[in-house]
């Protein structure tokens, strides 16, 4: 892809540019926020104390990334309540993979979900390193550096759980259930705006090529762990451009969500509403002043 022209700062974008930047940021921020919200469900419920500490850390990393992306949306005059606490639940853009609840004790779901998510996260954040929007590109390095642990953590668990027939069966079940939802990570929000994101060079890979790169990574890994992947029976190179995957009815990207999301949204906004808050307390330095 030809190197796109550098875009100016947030105040000097045209309306069309700004719309594309915002959409890209919502994709990123909402995914990170919502999946972290789900990850925290494992706190004080993970298989061992040590694994509990690790899942908490991963959740905090992802929330921290959401914080960085929402902060870039604040450049456009929004405040945290507009972006999170008082936003309509039906306006959120995260992939539905992020919002699904965990079944009681379903650690296989956590392992598979974080594996699928973190590999996708790696691909898409890599594609932001050369973003034409400097405010975004500047934050990529820090985020990417924390993804290493996430990927290694997920892969390590995946491999070990797949050594046993019993636990591998649970992992297989999670793969069967989650893979269609994971594909929504690469679903378009609005076709026209997604095309504009690519044309403006806000990311250097489009959704389809990222999905291909992701499948090239995850399918062989899952298979080598002894798992069966439906899509792996497709022609070589998993040529996704010519294959229709069965996506779930709700992709999240187009603001269609499962009922689980609306329940989750009610839960995490409960205190904010009960206290009658109109603002959200910041306790850390502005990311630009770090």
């Amino acid at each position: 892809m030809a190197a796109a022209q550098q875009l100016p700062g947030p105040q000097d974008l045209t309306d069309e540019q700004r719309e594309a930047v915002e959409m890209l940021l919502y994709r990123l921020a909402d995914d990170e926020f919502v999946i972290a919200e789900r990850y925290t469900e494992w706190q004080v419920r993970a298989p061992t104390i040590e694994s509990d500490l690790s899942v908490a850390n991963i959740a905090q990393d992802e929330l921290g990334h959401a914080r960085l992306w929402y902060d870039l949306l604040e450049d456009f005059g929004y405040e945290e309540p507009d972006l999170i606490w008082e936003r309509e639940a039906g306006d959120w853009r995260h992939s539905t993979l992020c919002e699904l609840p965990f079944g009681e004790g379903d650690w296989a779901d956590f392992v598979v979900r974080s594996y699928l998510y973190d590999e996708a996260e790696f691909v898409r954040v890599k594609a932001l390193e050369g973003s034409s929007y400097p405010r975004l590109a500047d934050r990529v390095e820090k985020v990417l550096a924390e993804e290493r642990y996430h990927r290694e953590h997920a892969r390590s668990w995946l491999e070990r759980l797949c050594e046993d027939d019993d636990s591998r069966a649970r992992v297989q079940d999670a793969v069967d259930r989650l893979l269609p939802y994971a594909l929504t990570l690469f679903s378009p929000t609005d076709e026209e705006i997604e095309a504009r994101i690519d044309e403006l060079g806000l990311r250097t890979e489009n959704l389809l090529s990222m999905r291909e790169a992701w499948l090239d990574e995850v399918v062989p890994t899952l298979e080598s762990a002894g798992l069966h992947v439906e899509e792996a029976e497709l022609p070589e190179q998993y040529d996704v451009h010519h294959v229709d995957f069965d996506l779930p009815d709700e992709t999240g990207r187009d603001q269609s969500h499962t009922d689980y999301w609306f329940d989750l949204f009610d839960e995490f906004t409960k205190s904010y509403r009960e206290l009658g808050r109109h603002s959200a307390m910041k306790i850390m330095k502005d990311p630009d002043d770090e």
């Binding site: 926020f33 919200e37 925290t40 706190q43 004080v44 908490a56 959200a280 910041k282 306790i283």
Partner: peptide
């Protein structure tokens, strides 16, 4: 305390609460 990670009324409070609960588990360890 764990339900209040979810119910924290700001993103940074949520981070702090998650970190606090994480520390308590660490103390248990």
């Amino acid at each position: 305390e764990r339900p209040f990670i979810r119910q924290a009324p700001s993103l940074e409070r949520k981070l702090a609460f998650s970190a606090k609960v994480q520390d308590e588990l660490g103390h248990g360890q």
